[in-house]
Design a binder for these strands. Structure first.
Length: 257
DNA sequence: ATGGTGGGCAGCCCA
């Protein structure tokens, strides 16, 4: 089975590209972030026509997450238990043989800003929630836009970025805590070309110069991670006219019937 | 050089 994550940065603008991409890359499950649509405005019928079940948790202007799946989705959560947040950043569902958690982690804006401290609190709440999800057992995959580059090799110019938001030590510690719960960053289970990123700033020709970060991630519970057969970032959509600033990340799993 | 570009909704907020 194939699962993917893609920060589409406005599904209203990107819908034709997402539909075209699903035609070329027929994933079983797609987690999207930054849909920027309320649920009544979500283009449900367009995805249903491709054979997907649809879940959306959105809001006007900002944030918004959605899940597409070939299979029914149950046990749906749209918030982290015990963490009240008006921002629509979380969507969890059980589908196929998986428990899927789609995340749009706060950006953090700048180190020591209010938004940065909100990001750190958010990550702390996430660790508590994921601990309980892992204790429940089952094949857990946690994927989305983490807005954290886990290691220096996930950064085009680590020296220029040192201490900045997305790479600061408190953010990375928050991320490592998730791995410590028993999750694996499946991209790193495979040999990858160096300088493989998932996000490039719109400015300064960053994509053309490959000045990017790897911040879109697929984490899997250990047993599920062992069944991962491939993980790759598809840069093709980033080359399109009016692209998202993020590329999709695709992971394949070999699951028993 | 503290800029630049893009999305959304109305002169800024956010990424």
């Amino acid at each position: 089975m194939r699962i993917a994550t893609w920060n589409v940065n406005s599904l209203r603008v990107r819908l034709p590209q997402v539909l075209e991409w699903l035609g070329r890359v027929p994933v079983d499950v797609l987690a999207m972030q930054e849909t920027k649509l309320t649920d009544p405005d979500f283009p449900r019928a367009e995805f249903e026509a491709l054979g997907y079940q649809v879940l959306a948790s959105g809001q006007k202007t900002y944030n918004g997450v959605a899940l597409l799946s070939r299979w029914a989705m149950t046990q749906v959560l749209t918030d982290m238990p015990g963490f009240a947040d008006a921002a629509r950043r979380v969507l969890a569902a059980s589908t196929g043989q998986l428990r899927v958690i789609n995340l749009y982690v706060p950006n953090g804006q700048a180190v020591d800003s209010d938004k940065y401290h909100y990001k750190l609190r958010w990550l702390e709440a996430l660790a508590g929630w994921l601990r309980s999800e892992l204790e429940a057992g089952g094949r857990l995959v946690v994927l989305g836009d983490f807005n954290i580059a886990p290691e220096d090799r996930d950064v085009h110019d680590p020296a220029a970025w040192v201490g900045s938001v997305h790479v600061s030590e408190p953010e990375r510690a928050g991320f490592r805590r998730l791995l410590g719960l028993g999750l694996s960053d499946v991209f790193r289970r495979f040999e990858q070309p160096p300088e493989t990123f998932s996000w490039w700033d719109y400015r300064m020709g960053a994509f053309r110069r490959n000045l990017g970060l790897r911040i879109d991630l697929v984490l899997a519970q250990q047993e599920l991670a062992a069944a991962c057969t491939a993980c790759a970032i598809d840069r093709a959509p980033r080359r399109a006219e009016r692209p998202s600033d993020h590329a999709p990340v695709i992971a394949d799993f070999n699951l028993p019937g």
